[in-house]
Design a protein around this nucleic acid. Sequence first.
RNA 1: GGAACCGUAGCUCAGCUGGUAGAGCGCUUCGUUUACACCGAAGAAGUCAGAGGUUCGAGUCCUCUCGGUUCCACCA
Length: 722
Amino acid sequence: MDKHYDHKASEEKWLKFWDEKGFFKADTDSPKKPYSLLIPPPNVTGALHLGHAMQHSILDAVARFKRMEGYDVLLLPGVDHAGIQFEGTLNKQLEKEGLSKQKLGREEWLKRAWKFKEDSYNSVSATWRVMGLSADWSRELFTLDPKVEKAVFEEFSSFWEQDLLYKGAYIVQWCPKDQTAIESVEMEYEERKEKLYFVKYNLAGTAGKEFITVATARPETIYADVAIAVHPDDPKYQKFIGREARKPLFDKNAPGGDRVKVISDSRVDKEFGTGALKITPGHDPLDYEIGKDANLAILHAVDKTGRMTPLAGDLEGLKVSEAREKAVEKLTQAGALEKVKDYTHSVPVCERCKTTIEPLISEEWFVKMKPLSEKALKRLDEVKFSPKNYETILGDWIKDIHDWCISRPLWWGYRLPVWYCQKCNPSRKVGKHLDMAVSLNAPEKPCQTCREKHWVQDESLLDTWFSSGLWPLATLGWPEQTGEFKKYFPWSFEISAPEIKYLWIARMIMLSVWFTDSIPFKNMFFHGMIRDLEGRKFSKSLGNGIDPNELRTQWGTDATRMALYTYSAPGRDGRASRQTMDERAKNFRNFGTKLWNIGNYIIELKPENLTTQDKSNHPDDKWVLGELDKTIQKVTKSLNSFDLHLATDEIYTFVWHTFADVYIEKTKSRRAEAQPTLEYVFKTSLELLHPFMPFITEELWQRLPHEGTSISVAPWPTKIEF
RNA sequence: GGAACCGUAGCUCAGCUGGUAGAGCGCUUCGUUUACACCGAAGAAGUCAGAGGUUCGAGUCCUCUCGGUUCCACCA
C-alpha cells in the first residue's frame, strides 16, 4: 500500500464500479421494502454551491444507510427550469453581449435558453456524480420533460374542472424590471429615506376656501386618485364626509375629471399624517381594498414598465422617480403643497433585481387555495419534521393562505394550457366554457359558440412552483397509478433549505394531499443555511461563495462530505469561510489517512504464521467489541433521527481514539491472537462509516476478508456477530 | 407590531428527555522505537450573554433583561 491514500484514483475507480454494477437502481419488482428519497431539483442556472453539496451529502448518507439496512432505495435526481431566476440569469448574460430578449425574439431566445440549460445541467450533473451520490440515474428528470408536463396539465385541468381557477382584476406586486408579477414571498423591504408630501385638495364648490390635506409619499399617483378616505370617527373630518374635493393634479380624460369623493373607512389610521388618506386603488393594496368595498373605479397612473400612463397628462412616459419630481413642482406652483417632511419607511423591492415594486392591478390567473389549505391542515401532523417546530411554522402559513398567483409573463417554462376563441372571446374573458378550452395543444374541437376554430393560446406561463410543487407526484408518473408511484409514494424522506419552506414545501404538501389524499413525504428535514463569517448569505455579487469542487479536489470527496456533515444539524445555520472549510476538510483528510494506515497495519502487516481465526477471550478484545457495540447502537440511532453530525462524530471518535489510539497499540505485543478481532472491528467500522465516506471505505473493505461484492450493499451492522 | 431561532475555549461549532463542561483548527511542551509526523504523548484555555426562579442538583426547564439573526404583517 502506498504511504498516502490517493483519493482521486479511488473515487474514479469506485464510481465506475458502482455504476457498472447498478447497485443504485431502484427496483419496483424487488421484494424489499421501499425507501424513497427525493432530491430537491436544483435550478439549472449555474453550478452547485456549498449548500447543495451539504444537502446532497445528507441525502446520500441516508440513502446509503437505508440501502445497507436492506431497503429497496430510490434516490431520485432531477433539475428545475426555474422560470424567473433562469430568465434573470440568462438575460444578464445576454446584456453583456449587447443582446436582449426583445432583440433576439422568442425563437432565437429559446435556442439560447436551451443551450444555457444544457451547460448548467452538465455542471450540476458532473458535480452530483463526483460527490458520490448513489442516485438512480435512469430515473433522472427535468421539470420540462414530457412526464412532468403530463402531470402539470392534469393539475391545471383538474383545478379548472373543480372551479378553483379564476382570472380577474387583482392587486399584484409588479416588478417593472423583470416584467412580472411576483409574490409577497419574493419581495424584500428596503429602508429608504424619502419625503412625505402634504397635499391640499380644495373642497368642490368652496373656491379655494376649504381644504382637506392628505399626506402621501407618492404624489405622482394623484392622477389615479378616486377618493379621499377619513376615519368615520375622526371629528376633524366629519363635515367633509360625502362631499367632493378637487384633485390638484388631474387628467381631463379621467373618469370624473378632477373630482374625488370624501368617504369614510375605519381602516384609515387617524394618527398617521393628517388622518386623511388619498385612495388610489390602482397602486396600493389598502386603497384597492377600500376602493373595492366602496365600488370605486381603478385608475392607473403608472404602467407595467414603471412609466407614467396617458392619465398623467404631460408627465406621460416619464419614470416614476422623474414623474415624482415634476409632480412636486406642479403642486408647488399650484400652491397645493402645504409642507414636506422627511420620512423613513421600508419600500418593497424585488428580491432578485432590487427594483422598487409597483403595486398594480393586473389580469392574472389564480388558484383558490382555501380548500387545499383546509384539507392539508388536517394531515399536516403526519409529516415528521426536523426540527419539530417547522410543523407549527408551516401550519400557521397554510392557515393564513392567500390565493396563489400562477401566471407569469415569461418565455421559459410551461405556457398556460388555455385557449380562447379569438372570434367569440377576443378580450379573453374567463368563465364561459363555451368559447374557451383547456388543452395542451390547440383544441381539435371547434368553439361551441361559433362552431369554428379560432383558437389562440394564453400568452402567460405557469409559475415555476406550479410544476415543482407537483414534483413528488410527477416524478413517479402520476396521474397514472404506475408501479413506481404505488411503491415509492409517499416519499420516505425529503430535504430542503428553510428559505423555500412556503414556496415549495407547503405547496407540495397542499397539492399532494389535494390530489392523492396523502402527504407527499413522511420525513421532512430542514437543514440550516451556511453563511459567511459575517453571517451574510453567500451570493455572487458579494463573491463570498465557496466552491465545493475546489474543496473536493484538494481534500477529497470523503473529507469534503465529512466536513459538511459537521454543519448538518437540523435547522441550524452555520458560518464558514474557505479557511474554516479547509480546516475541517483537512481534519477529515487526515482521518482518511488514519484509516488508510490502520488498513496498512491490519492488512499488509498481517502476521504470516496465523494459527487460528477463532476469537480470543482476551479482556482487551472483549473490551473493544463492547465499545464497538455501543458505537453501532449510537450511530444507528443518530442516523435514524437524521442527526448526521452526531453519527459522524461517534464513529470518528471510536475509530481514531478508541480503536486506533488504545486498542491497536495494545495488540502489538500479541499481534497474531488479536488479528481476527482487528479485522472484524475494522470491517464493521468501515461499514458504519460508509454512508458518510463512501470511497475510502469501499477501497479498504474490498481489501479485507469480506462477503459480497460491495460495501454499499453490505448488511448494516446491528450487533456484534463475532 | 406578531413569531421563531441563536448568544458555550482565540476561531468554527457539538452537547438527546437536567447529574462533575466537549470536538476540530489554533496554541504550549515532549517524542522521529517496528501502521501512521496528513502521527503519538502530555498540557494551557470557558463564572456555558446577564439576572432571577423551579430542583438535592441547570449549559440543559421557566421568567425577565441585553445582544445578534431570520420569518410574517403593516407602513398613505
